[in-house]
Design a protein around this nucleic acid. Sequence first.
DNA 1: AATATAAGCGACCGGTCGGTCTTATTGTCT
DNA 2: AGACAATAAGACCGACCGGTCGCTTATATT
Lengths: 209, 209
Amino acid sequence: MTDGRKVRGQRSREAILATAVELASVDGLDGLSLSKLAAAAGMSKSGFFSHWRDKTELQLDAVEWAAAQWRDRIVVPALRRPRGVRRLFALHEERLRFYAEGVLPGGCFFFAAEAEFDDLPGPVRERIAEAKRDWHGLLLRVLSEAVAQGDLVPETDPELLVFEINAIGAAVVTSARLLECEPSFRHGRQAVLQRLRALATDPALLPED
Amino acid sequence: MTDGRKVRGQRSREAILATAVELASVDGLDGLSLSKLAAAAGMSKSGFFSHWRDKTELQLDAVEWAAAQWRDRIVVPALRRPRGVRRLFALHEERLRFYAEGVLPGGCFFFAAEAEFDDLPGPVRERIAEAKRDWHGLLLRVLSEAVAQGDLVPETDPELLVFEINAIGAAVVTSARLLECEPSFRHGRQAVLQRLRALATDPALLPED
DNA sequence: AATATAAGCGACCGGTCGGTCTTATTGTCT
DNA sequence: AGACAATAAGACCGACCGGTCGCTTATATT
């Protein structure tokens, strides 16, 4: 049985979360003020509290929403590439594309959120840490597949390589926004590409530049 | 002629800035509230305004103070190492040591400040960008010296390598604070060490692990 | 000794923060 | 048609924000 109220509520809930993630990518998840969010979402501030008990609940759902967006816009497209080193590089490339396309006005929700909450104990911090662990875990899994099927030489410490790939992706965000845009994206791409090509048993699987 | 007022003023000015940089490494430079700063510095809030016109001026001086701290605690010690690849790696190592020692309660002032201000136009953002450019410039200069004196193979794109080294140093901050501490520092060290050893004409110049 | 200046304090300003309460509207179920 | 529940709005709250004001105290200058 369809419930028009719940449908409507769900729709505005989604719209609010989408707006919240956009604003949070700029001002941070904590720096986000309910007044600004209300104005941006075209709602009254008090309306939020029929959806969430307090700001923390909204923040938790915003992290959830941003994680779903990351999955849909980065992970899922990359997983369409064939298993192996190409899929691993695709994860990095899709991430950079996400940034370059300016999907979020502040570049990256998780980058801003991590920097903000890494010193603020609480459930939001834990949820963000979990998202970071998930991303590292995915990279590690895809990397292991690449090694298992012989795309990459196995001598490598896989967790170290995952750390590097993620570090370079994260560095692109600040670098592109604070300094010049073009060289940052080029460096972010080249760094991982050259690293993987050096480890690849068949470098032809990866683009040349 | 010594002016006891100015001496006293300068001393408390320094103390306030030191406290401000500490607090800002946790809450960010904008998230820093004057009330909290006043409480932490053991001063009244209004007393600030005999030193700085407004919060922005204080923020600018805080960036300056943090830059001086970075120079004193990271750059100067590293420059005592012999010119070349060892000096380059020392810059990275001293940075990681600065983080590991917990000099600042939030880990890194500049990391927090960059993430916060990369989307906030204004003089503070420009000053932070300048500090970032200075750091990249220093890394590039030391790297060029290492190449020039034959420590490193010259084929490398130097700016790309600088980007990578800085990216890995920055990634250690969030990773160590949000996930586990020990593997983050190990990865941050190993990543740069292996990268440089692979490029070094004489790997014996660098530690083995 | 008189005067100028800097440091610092307490009270207070308008504004915004996250959050509560009451009320109006609206779709759903019986 | 009427009871009911969900959504959202508006008025409002205490706390805190950055910042101003007038004032006291301590130091230099003359």
